[in-house]
């Protein structure tokens, strides 16, 4: 069993990703306040949290406006995810939007940015210091982002699909180069197997991406450069399969398919790399959107994302070797029956 260890590694990594990636909770966050604006005077409202522990540890709450703090006068937890709070708002808050912050021992610091419109604005208030020691949360959880919410876990499935597809297409590209150099039909079979399996991963990437787009952007398909890139990629490799199907002679088929594969692969790569930077994209890292790594890929996501990438790529290569064995056996049995 020479060389089996990486198959085991891929299984272990993917089990880890599926179990830990789906069972780890999202971090706590403030998601909603029951009033839209605050005016000078007594203001009472309800704050809704997600995965918070307000009942266990009563939180401290304070408003923040242009760096100035205003502490709550009374805090009454209703449940773990809801708390009723009262502020005495003075005249003179500076900025038009006011944020609300909270802290408790278990959940750490929480914030809902620009939660309220401010009324009765002026040149600032006199702060009363509120005794809060802001220690960070220690529990292991994924970042809780507006819009993304629980779908952030899809990062471990959607993105590695495309990485795996790219790796398999690169294998296919390499084997196509070998076909042109040596005219080896075995290399041609490898190129074909890699394309077949990479198309499977492209389909999985499209499905997971489509579900994610529906959940976050509200649509199954949008006209986004990355989506156009994915569509072009799938069309190119479908055309590759059709080209192969239209040539009966084995050696000629190998050569022409290799030429098309090399031509298309290079152009596709240039397209996927450059075009998203020319036009706006909804994806992170394009058109002014920050990349995942700069704000979302914190240590908890990294601990799952990198194993997921390695695991999926190894699984893809494994599937490719199996597919290749099947096609070799088919070729052998065809030869035998002839």
């Amino acid at each position: 069993m020479k060389g089996w260890w990486w198959k085991g590694l891929s299984v272990v990594l993917l089990l880890y990703v599926v179990i830990v990636g789906l069972r780890t909770p999202l971090g706590p966050a403030l998601v909603h306040v029951s009033v839209e604006r605050i005016a000078p005077g007594e203001v009472s409202f309800e704050v809704t949290g997600y995965n918070t522990h307000f009942q266990e540890h009563a939180p401290h709450l304070w408003l923040e406006n242009d760096g100035q703090k205003l502490c709550a006068t009374s805090v009454t937890p209703i449940s773990d995810a809801a708390v009723s709070v009262t502020f005495t708002v003075p005249q003179g808050l500076r900025e038009s939007m006011t944020s609300i912050r909270a802290w408790d021992v278990k959940d750490g610091p929480l914030v809902l940015h620009e939660a309220f419109f401010t009324e009765g604005r002026g040149t600032g208030i006199t702060e009363t210091p509120c005794a809060i020691q802001e220690t960070a949360r220690t529990s292991f959880a994924f970042p809780n982002r507006a819009i993304l919410n629980e779908t952030i876990r899809n990062l471990f499935f959607h993105v590695p699909m495309w990485f795996t597809m790219m790796v398999l297409m690169t294998i296919s590209f390499w084997q196509s180069l070998r076909v042109l150099r040596t005219g080896d039909l075995g290399a041609d079979r490898m190129a074909l197997s890699a394309v077949d399996v990479s198309l499977l991963f492209a389909a999985l990437g499209l499905i997971t991406g489509s579900i994610w787009a529906r959940a976050t952007w509200g649509n199954w398909w949008t006209s986004d450069p990355k989506l156009n890139g994915a569509a072009v990629t799938v069309l190119i490799y479908a055309a590759y399969l059709i080209l192969r199907g239209s040539i009966p002679d084995g050696h000629k088929r190998a050569r022409l398919a290799a030429i098309y594969n090399i031509f298309a692969y290079v152009l596709m790569f240039v397209f996927i790399m450059v075009l998203p930077r020319l036009t706006d994209s909804l994806h992170p890292g394009n058109g002014g959107n920050p990349a995942f790594s700069s704000y979302d890929l914190d240590s908890s996501l990294r601990a799952l994302f990198y194993p997921a990438v390695i695991g999926w790529i190894l699984l893809g290569v494994w599937a490719y070797t199996l597919h290749l064995r099947v096609s070799r056996l088919k070729a052998l049995s065809d030869d035998a029956s002839d």
């Binding site: 156009n228 031509f263 152009l267 075009l275 020319l278």
Partner: peptide, 27 residues
């Protein structure tokens, strides 16, 4: 040239060429 060599004329050329021309067409 590829389509001509594959002996399948203009139909195959449309299938092979369209996805490769598409990025260029978009920009």
């Amino acid at each position: 040239a590829l389509a001509a060599r594959a002996g399948n004329g203009i139909g195959l050329m449309a299938i092979l060429g369209f996805p490769i021309v598409l990025p260029m067409l978009l920009s």
